[in-house]
Design a protein around this nucleic acid. Structure first.
Length: 884
RNA sequence: GGGGUUAUAGCUCAGUUGGUUAGAGUGCUUCGUUGACAUCGAAGAGGUCACAGAUUCGAAUUCUGUUAAUCCCA
């Protein structure tokens, strides 16, 4: 039989690990392909393999786990596919940092040895984050765990690369890209964060050849001057029209560059004359293409000045700027320096200022891939939750530019391109190449670069299911049901998965995209390492339990919005767990004599039983509806309120009399039954949110089955809804509150009971109260209780309150404080007057009567009646008081 | 420059197709512990729903504008 002596206080440490192990041992997370079962699948947003769990992960995975556990209980064949991302730059940087501590660089080791080190690192620390996900309770199918660098994913990546290349959608080109001097690699456009910085406008003097005239050029980056190959002006700019076609002399350098006209130039910006450096600025690059200008690269990959910059060669870019300005000033080329705010690009990984740089890179042509991806969302095949993110997504895709996918790193999927040293042929093939298909030479070398990490992440929904093979997994679980992720990676990841999914998975990768916000600190700042304001979710789990963290994360916010982390909110969630814990304890302590086979007859149910069962049934409906709408926070709040405000605050109290009376066996058994039914079913409702505590309690109380996590989700409880019981119980509860209120007003001694007289408007209500008056005694300290009809004379020396259909009198032994009582009733009168004024105004408005739904008008009429009845009772009382 | 989000109780936030006496948690005040829980219970104070218009019989909720905060894109 069940154990009844469970600890007095909720102690998550004592059972969380145990249950996770139990679920894994019973293999409850695992999904087999079962063609006849309805599938529900989610692929995890793969965390960085060497990373550690932060609040964002905790939120993201809690949301996924709730959906997965809920659908699993609903009977779906449920797959949550876990895995990690190899995270090119981040992981490589970590290993390089470790090497640096040994005084080495990756170049000292060489590519192969370095990669061995990375794999060692991955094997050593790679399971760290998945262990942390387990401690959160994530019910992932660990048997299927994947890694973006594993064999299957590598195969998929090659397949996709070769296919896109053969379709002409991948090409190699010498173009301007963003270069991070610290990471020493090219970046895609979205890996650059633009920030407004305070900088300067340097006004320089460029002399017109063979004249005394000069053109004033304003630049924010004078050091790129060495790469200038022209100066552009707007064709309609009268100030410069006469110079178009003329030649300028580059200061200090003496090189000759042309003046040309281009619509791009904004005559109102700066001086209206722009120095053009095609190798170091994207706009200048475009102008250079239009006008056939030479590209002169003047910066090295580490952001020092190139050898073609004379005495500045080797200097850091900023050091050079300083020196150069000094030199220009000295030689009279500097006109002035103005303060100027401008947007500067930073590496999203390391925050170093990026350099736009011309280099040879691989690109994906986006236009034809983006089109169907836009269409899939516009047509509603893929739906964003909340809907507003649709616009963000489509706007980005509609203005998309080609995607630079090559990275000058070692850790990642190496580009499957081979170059023939003899004939120069480039071959892109799926298998490692040893002979040149063109000339048969064996002198080949593979492209040194690796692919952008997001290239393989983009294949995640289908590469994890065995693509390119036609696996049963793909057939059953692709497309996945929903993707859960933060709004910060819609471009990086979501959009790319949609494009790749449509192109290669031959279908959308997921039906819904459920977007959440960021978890910020209590001041609303982003949690970050540099600020040191991050809260470690593992610390919260250790101190308060995973259930507490989960519940805290999903309540008190709405989908798509950021939230703040407060320890007070953690405590509040913990208190809720403790409340549930103790409610269960209460039940276990009163289980003696429990008969599993006992089922009450309809006539056995008390009003309180009918009420809580009805409330429970409505809770099931509401929670299920909210989950279907992805309103997980609302769903959680609904269960919270049911458990705390209805089940604990009222039903448990109402059940006590029957439980303590061991003589009336049948009544006691009915109470045990209802208590057990509601608690056991409520635990199921709560299980997706708080898996551990619900399992721990569920296993203690009477139950069927091996785990609450695979017990059926409550459904079809409609027959339990009983509106009459709810109305009657509400009247009793309102009456109890009124009596408590009055007792508090007169500072009644808590241990002493008060006599109460109740007058009823209807006989039915009087009967209901007659058979339930014990509740008033226990919960409102009312005794003796006199029940009379409204027609009876009113008690004279008494306090008064009115609830719908009931007038409540609290006769006082001594004289009542006429002044205080009058003030209290006058306040009540004011309140009622306001309400009556409002309702009457509404009801005398012909527009309202005519246009509002009849049901609503009727409701307002009833309200009016209720308010007026109360008012006259209060008024009558005031008249009486005035006579004293 | 373009776009998004937010503005409701001291604080953090709910309020989902327009109709509630505008809610919760936390904090605050008063009272309460021999039988689930002080990680608790009871009672209470606290809001011109940012501002100005518009639509409507009716607006915290829809629309427009203003202000402030914040984010994304360029």
């Amino acid at each position: 039989m069940e154990e009844s002596n469970i600890p007095k206080v909720y102690d998550p440490q004592s059972f969380e690990k145990k249950w996770y192990k139990y679920w894994e041992e019973k293999n409850l997370f695992h999904a087999e392909v079962e063609a006849d079962k309805k599938p529900y699948s989610i692929v995890i947003p793969p965390p960085n393999v060497t990373g550690q769990l932060h609040m964002g992960h905790a939120l993201d995975n809690t949301l996924q786990d709730i959906l997965i556990r809920w659908r699993r209980m609903q009977g779906y064949n449920t797959l949550w596919m876990p895995g990690c991302d190899h995270a090119g730059i981040a992981t490589q940087a970590k290993v390089e940092e470790a090497l640096r501590k040994e005084g080495k660089s990756r170049h000292d080791l060489g590519r192969d040895k370095f990669l061995e080190r990375v794999w060692d690192w991955k094997n050593q620390f790679g399971s760290h984050i998945t262990m942390q996900l387990r401690s959160l309770g994530s019910s992932c199918d660990w048997e299927r765990e994947r890694f973006t660098m594993d064999e299957g994913c590598s195969k998929a990546v090659r397949e996709v690369f070769v296919s896109l290349y053969n379709k002409g959608l991948i090409y190699q080109g010498t173009r301007i890209t963003n270069w991070c001097p610290r990471c020493s690699t090219a970046l895609s456009d979205i890996e650059v964060d633009h920030e407004t910085e305070a900088g300067h406008f340097y006004h320089l003097r460029y002399q017109v050849e063979d004249t005394a005239e000069y053109v004033q050029i304003a630049t924010t980056r004078p050091e790129t001057m060495f790469g200038d190959t022209g100066v552009a002006v707007h064709p309609e700019d009268d100030r410069y029209k006469h110079l178009i076609g003329k030649t300028l002399i580059l200061p200090l350098v003496g090189r000759k560059i042309p003046v040309f006209a281009d619509e791009y130039v904004d005559p109102d910006f700066g001086t209206g004359a722009v120095k053009v450096t095609p190798a170091h600025d994207p706009n200048d690059f475009d102008m250079g293409q239009r006008h056939g200008l030479e590209q002169i690269v003047v910066l090295n990959n580490d952001a020092t000045m190139a050898s073609n910059t004379g005495k500045y060669a080797g200097m850091d870019r900023y050091e050079c700027r300083k020196q150069l300005i000094a030199d220009l000033k000295e030689q009279g080329f500097l006109i002035k320096i103005e303060d100027h705010e401008h947007a500067v690009g930073h590496c999203s990984r390391c925050h170093t200022t990026v350099e736009p740089l011309v280099s040879k890179q691989w690109f994906v042509k986006m236009e034809s891939l983006a089109k169907p991806a836009i269409e899939a969302v516009k047509s509603g095949d893929i739906q964003f939750v909340p809907e507003r993110f649709t616009k963000i997504y489509t706007n980005w895709l509609e203005n998309i530019r080609d995607w630079c996918i090559s990275r000058q790193l070692w850790w990642g999927h190496r580009i499957p391109a081979w170059y023939c040293d003899d004939c120069g042929q480039t071959s892109v093939v799926g298998e490692d190449l040893t002979t040149c298909p063109k000339c048969g030479s064996t002198h080949l070398h593979q492209d040194e670069d690796v692919l952008d990490t997001w290239f393989s992440s983009g294949l995640w929904p289908f590469e994890t299911m065995g693509w390119p093979d036609k696996t049963p997994e793909l057939k059953q679980f692709y497309p996945t049901s929903v993707l859960v992720t933060g709004y910060d990676i819609i471009f990086f990841w979501v959009a790319r998965m949609v494009m790749m999914g449509l192109e290669f998975g031959k279908d959308i990768p997921f039906k819904h995209v459920f977007i959440h916000g960021l978890v910020r600190d209590s001041q609303g700042r982003k949690m970050s390492k540099s600020l040191g304001n991050g809260i470690d979710p593992v610390e919260v789990i250790d101190k308060y339990g995973a259930d507490t963290l989960r519940f805290m994360l999903i309540t008190g916010n709405t989908p798509g919005n950021d939230m703040r982390f407060y320890w007070e909110r953690v405590e509040s969630a913990r208190n809720f767990a403790n409340k549930l814990w103790n409610a269960s304890r209460f039940m276990l302590m009163n289980l003696e004599g429990f008969d599993k086979s006992f089922v009450p007859e309809k006539s056995d149910y008390t009003l309180a039983d009918q009420w809580i069962l009805s409330r429970y049934a409505k809770t099931v409906q509401e929670v299920t509806n909210n989950l279907e709408k992805f309103e997980l926070g609302e769903a959680g709040r609904t269960i919270y309120e049911f458990i705390w405000n209805e089940f604990c605050d009222w039903y448990i109290e109402l059940s006590k009399a029957r439980l303590y009376d061991t003589e009336a066996v049948r009544a006691r058994q009915t109470a045990q039954y209802v208590l057990g039914y509601v608690l056991e079913h409520t635990l199921r409702l709560l299980h997706p949110f708080m898996p551990f505590i619900t399992e721990e309690i569920w296993q203690h109380i009477p139950h069927e089955g091996e785990s609450v996590m695979v017990s059926p989700w409550p459904a079809d409880e409609m027959s339990k809804i009983d509106d009459a019981a709810e109305t009657n119980m509400t009247a009793i509860m309102e009456t109890i509150k009124s009596i408590r209120n009055m007792r508090a007003e007169v500072k009644a001694v808590p241990s002493k009971k008060s006599a109460v007289v109740l007058h009823f408007a209807s006989e039915t209500l009087q009967t209901v109260f007659a058979s339930n008056q014990g509740y008033l005694t226990v919960l409102a300290s009312a005794q003796p209780i006199t029940l009379e009809s409204l027609a009876e004379g009113k008690p004279e020396n008494a306090m008064t309150a009115v609830v719908n259909g009931v007038e409540i009198y609290l006769p006082l032994k001594g004289l009542i404080d006429v002044e205080k009582e009058t003030a209290r009733l006058n306040k009540e009168l004011d309140l009622l007057d306001n309400e009556i004024k409002r309702v009457t105004g509404k009801l005398s408005n012909v527009g309202f009567i005519g246009k509002a739904p009849a049901e609503l008008v009727e409701k307002e009429r009833e309200k009016q009646k209720g308010f007026e009845e109360k008012r006259s009772a209060v008024q009558e009382r005031l008249v009486y008081l005035a006579t004293l």
